[in-house]
């Protein structure tokens, strides 16, 4: 990373967008509950900074728990898939189900089974985040070069040794990429979970704030919540990217 050179252009775009945004509000004389000017959003964000911070922390915790569950669950499922092609072919369609199921439709079931609150939010984050891990880990486990598998077989390796010493480490780069994708999805999933199966007035996540501020037409505050949610996603993604780069430094491929 080279500091200003990386950050400069996106910042310029942000400034330009804020300028256009402000101009649009003035030119079309939009009422603030439809589109508040950027300065009003900044002021609201500042005024509710404490609440936004606490909400981001709660949502972030749910997202990280969902991500952790996705990584563990996804790797376990992929481990099963890697054991036999027949097994993988029989089960893969049901894994895709996780990818395509509309959360709105299953939210009532999740509330029925897990109640409202943190647990359900994590479950939604997991459902949304697990598929990339399943797909990435399966690809990583099964794309090992034939020579490497033969090497292990010639030396009489057990199935377990082949998995533990070859397939799992071989899959690390794909796992890291999958975790990055899954981390972003888990944040979105946690916010969705809070909207559908969220908390009461006691515990307020970002999803709760979305529902409340939208309901009360506090549009400037809603914008501030959206900004906080985006920021949370960036922080999670950035942290995963940095960790992943550190982990993968050794995995540079050998020709």
């Amino acid at each position: 990373m080279s500091g200003l050179r990386d950050i400069g252009p996106p910042l310029a775009v942000l400034g330009l967008a804020a300028l256009l945004w402000h101009a649009a509000v003035v030119v079309f004389a939009l009422p603030p509950y439809v589109l508040p000017p950027p300065a009003a959003v900044a002021a609201e964000a500042w005024r509710h900074a404490g609440e936004l911070g606490a909400a981001s922390a709660l949502t972030g915790a749910a997202a990280l728990a969902g991500l952790a569950a996705s990584v563990v669950g996804g790797v376990l499922v992929a481990f099963v898939f890697a054991q036999s092609r027949l097994l993988a072919r029989s089960l893969y369609p049901y894994a895709i189900f996780l990818q395509t199921v509309p959360i709105v439709a299953v939210a009532p079931l999740i509330i029925l089974w897990f109640g409202t609150g943190f647990g359900s939010v994590v479950v939604v984050a997991f459902i949304v985040g697990v598929f990339p891990v399943i797909a990435g880990a399966t690809a990583g486990f099964t794309s090992v070069e034939r020579d490497l598998v033969d090497l292990f077989r010639v030396h009489g390796a057990t199935r377990w040794q082949v998995f533990w010493k070859l397939r799992l480490p071989h899959a690390v780069p794909q796992l890291v990429t999958a975790a990055e994708v899954s981390g972003g999805l888990a944040v979105v999933g946690a916010i969705m979970g809070e909207v559908f199966a969220g908390y009461g007035a006691g515990a307020r996540g970002l999803g709760y704030l979305v529902v409340v501020t939208a309901g009360q037409l506090k549009t400037a505050y809603l914008f501030a919540v959206v900004l906080a949610a985006t920021g949370l996603g960036l922080v999670v993604f950035g942290a995963l990217r940095l960790t992943g780069d550190a982990v993968c430094a050794r995995w540079r491929d050998v020709a």
């Binding site: 490497l148 090497l151 292990f152 480490p169 690390v172 050794r250 995995w251 050998v254």
Partner: peptide
């Protein structure tokens, strides 16, 4: 033992640990 057309070394292991792999197995 077998030597392949490609060196087929494990990129995440040092050279020493690559050479030690068959012993480990």
């Amino acid at each position: 033992a077998m030597v392949f057309q490609q060196p087929a070394l494990l990129p995440w292991r040092t050279v020493l640990r690559n050479v030690a792999l068959p012993l480990e197995l």
